[in-house]
Amino acid sequence: MENEFQPIIVGFLCNWCSYRAADLAGTARVHYAPTMRPIRVMCTARVEPEFVLKALREGADGVLIAGCHPGECHYVEGNIKALRRFTLLKAMLRQFGVEEERVQLVWAAASEGKQLAEAVDRMTEQLRALGPLRWRQRVLGEQPVARHALEVEVGG
């Protein structure tokens, strides 16, 4: 049923801040939607646009990129580079018919476990409202294999 839809969010989390924020949210037992599949990256600048497109094609309903606040990036300006890419990527994805809410960039410091959890909750609600993406199946007209595989692999 549509109202039970549990979106899949692929989360690219910076090792130095947001990944620790997610850890903190866990140890502090913050309750938030179990929708994010976290992937640790060394910096938001490591997130190539290809990663995002691939996640969307392979079954993600949304992609969350989370990193250090401007001025706090471990590699000085990696997060600003990420913001430049992300801004252009959003404009391009609009042309592909992908709603703005499906790809988000947030800043979450290592101490901001609660903020990260809130971002995931917020995005989950937005994706619920938008409904599933299921690119291969619904846009490319392929069989639903990819999504099942993804659910078994990472959702199980």
């Binding site: 190539e48 646009p49 290809e50 497109l53 600003i80 430049r84």
Partner: peptide
């Protein structure tokens, strides 16, 4: 490679905006 994604990344890296 995905040509569009690669170009997007290349373009983003020549933009000067958003200084610290």
């Amino acid at each position: 490679q995905d040509q569009g994604a690669r170009m997007l990344a290349a373009v983003a890296s020549v933009v000067a905006a958003g200084g610290s």
